[in-house]
Structure formats: structure tokens, C-alpha cells
Amino acid sequence: MPQLTGVHHVKFPVSDLAASRAWYEKVFGFEVTMEFPDEQGVVRGLAGAVKGLGDAGLALRWNPEAAAGIKGFDPVSFGIEDKAAAEEWAAHLDDLGIPHSPVIDATIGWILVFHDPDGTEIHLYSFAAHGIDQTGRKGYGRHVES
């Protein structure tokens, strides 16, 4: 089988490119490095970098229908170190006035959940595991035998 070499970029559909750009800049420090104009010269997409995503980029694409279609869905989980990092992010979001979940003991690690301007659910999930056995807990994952 051919091999993957990583994640190139994550792209979110948005209904208001300017508002989403401002939000992603404020929340994640998104640095725009490219614009994508349509045939009439109207910018319909942006791409750039977010510190902590390594070589993976972040892109925003004007597509109101797709943005409405994933409202409340979590297409990607961004990695954070541990519970302390989740608590730091919660404080950052509080400072920005952005509503969020409490720090949750998820299936494997800790998670913080909030929404972008279109209602797309953003997950910050810890790489550190908490060691809590969530087997049988409604809505939580379970390991499968291979």
C-alpha cells in the first residue's frame, strides 16, 4: 500500500470569510499566507499557518451550504498536550469571551469543545491519556480486537 506522509492542511467551509478569518486569527493565531480569488477576483478562500500544527496548514473556504451542513459536527480534533493544556485553552477562550465546554475526561484523554462562527465544533484533544476506563459509558468509544 502507498504511504501517507502526514496531514497537508485542514479546510473549513465558512459562510462569512472575513468574520471567520478574524475569529481564527484571534483564537488560533492564524497567519494568512495565500488568497484564492474566483474568476471575478473575489477572494473565496484563504490558507495559512497556525503555530502548533507543524507542516499542516489551515484553510478557510467560502461555502455557506457546506458550512451549514457541518454545523454541530467536529471534522477534526486539534492535539494538545494534556489536561493542563486544556485548562490553559479554556482560560484563553474565557479571555476572548468564547463559550466552551468544561474540560472533559473523554474516551482516552481530555477534551475541550467550542464552536467557530458557523457552529462547526472544534475539539482540542490531549495526546496524554488519563487512564480512566470509559468502557460501557454511554457515548464513549471502546477498543476493538483486531
Rank of each mutant, 00 (worst) to 15 (best):
I80F: 03
A22I: 01
L60D: 02
A85S: 09
E35C: 01
A68W: 04
L17A: 13
P64D: 13
S77M: 14
F36N: 12
A86S: 14
T33F: 08
A68G: 08
K71T: 10
R44H: 01
T33M: 05
F30S: 02
V14Y: 06
L46M: 03
K11L: 13
S15Y: 02
M34W: 14
F28T: 05
W23F: 10
G54R: 13
S15Q: 04
F12S: 03
K83M: 09
D94Y: 00
V27L: 06
G48F: 10
T33W: 07
S20A: 14
V43I: 09
V42S: 05
E81I: 07
D82G: 10
D38P: 08
A68E: 12
H92T: 14
A22E: 15
S20D: 13
L93M: 00
V27T: 10
A59I: 11
G45M: 04
P13E: 00
Y24D: 02
P13A: 03
V43N: 09
G41L: 01
V27W: 06
G52M: 11
S15E: 08
D94V: 02
F12I: 06
S15P: 04
A59N: 04
A19D: 11
A86T: 12
A85N: 00
E88F: 02
I80Y: 07
A19F: 07
K71V: 07
V50D: 07
L46Q: 00
A18W: 02
W62E: 15
S77T: 15
D55G: 15
G57V: 03
F78C: 12
K26R: 11
A67E: 14
L58C: 09
E88Q: 10
I80A: 01
V76D: 06
P37S: 03
E31C: 00
F30I: 05
K26V: 02
Y24K: 07
P75L: 09
T33S: 09
R44E: 08
A91L: 08
A56S: 14
D74F: 13
L58W: 05
L60P: 05
G48A: 14
W23I: 01
L58K: 06
G41K: 02
E35A: 00
V27D: 05
E31G: 02
S15H: 03
L53V: 09
D16K: 05
P37A: 08
D55H: 12
R44N: 09
E35M: 02
